[in-house]
Amino acid sequence: MALTKAELFEQIRRDSWREGLSVRALARKYGVHRRLVREALTRAELAPRRTPQRRSAQLEPFKKVIDEWLRADLDAPRKQRHTSTRIHRRLVDEQGMGEVSYSAVRDYVARRKPEIWIEEGRGPAQVFIPQHHPPGREAEVDFGELWVRLAGVMTVCYLFAYRMSYSGKAVHKVW
């Protein structure tokens, strides 16, 4: 079973304190680099992972133009809006941008289009409201008529439906 980084750091600290092992001995024991052992011994908490901000230097001058086209698409009929392919083609034809790849344009448009819709107040609201149902407090009850064929004769019966909100269990009774 593989250890998480936090568990590994904890074991390295414990062995360093209990057994008095050196950095080199700890690295050999756990099969990690000495740099990692030193980090475990000096840091109280794990360092957060850094994710690099990727950007396309060739696409940078054209981002404002692409944003303008996407903003203009807000009022355009659905079939007339720009696709990534159409934007790339327009950039090559009108702006003289031959060195930027289609995938760079596609990735930018896929990320930027929903952002523009939200900025303009037309996108779906990013809202989540959790529901909290304490045990035994809330339930849903419903009554209704139910037609049943009994011995070949259509008979009206009454249905009682009860559903508990916390567990989702339901009880139904017909009479």
Rank of each mutant, 00 (worst) to 15 (best):
F9I: 00
I66G: 01
P135H: 05
V65P: 03
E19Q: 12
Y102E: 02
F143A: 08
R111L: 08
A104S: 14
H82W: 13
E138P: 01
R18M: 12
K63N: 04
W69H: 11
E10Y: 05
H133G: 03
W69D: 03
P61R: 01
W147R: 10
V148K: 03
P114T: 13
R24I: 04
V109P: 06
V92Y: 02
L8P: 00
R81H: 10
S103R: 12
E119D: 10
R81C: 08
Y166E: 06
R111N: 04
V37E: 00
K79S: 12
L150R: 09
A125S: 10
K169V: 15
K63Y: 06
S56M: 03
S167F: 07
W147A: 08
R38P: 01
E145A: 11
H33C: 03
E99V: 02
R163G: 05
Q53I: 13
D75A: 15
E120P: 02
L146R: 07
S167Q: 07
I87R: 06
M154Y: 14
E140P: 01
A72P: 02
L8D: 00
V171P: 01
R137A: 09
L150F: 12
L146E: 11
E119R: 09
W175C: 10
G31K: 09
A104H: 08
L146V: 14
L159R: 09
K64W: 02
R81N: 09
E99G: 12
G123K: 02
E60N: 02
R34V: 11
Q11G: 04
I66M: 08
A151L: 12
R28K: 15
Y102K: 10
A151E: 13
R50P: 01
E60C: 02
F9K: 00
E119Y: 13
L150Q: 11
S165A: 02
T83F: 12
D107P: 03
D93E: 14
R18I: 15
M1N: 06
R112A: 09
G98Y: 15
R54F: 10
L159F: 14
P52T: 11
A76Q: 14
G152Y: 02
L46F: 04
E19R: 15
P135L: 03
P61G: 03
V141G: 08
S56L: 02
V109K: 08
I12V: 00
G136H: 06
V109E: 06
D75C: 12
F62W: 08
Q80Y: 09
A161K: 07
R86E: 09
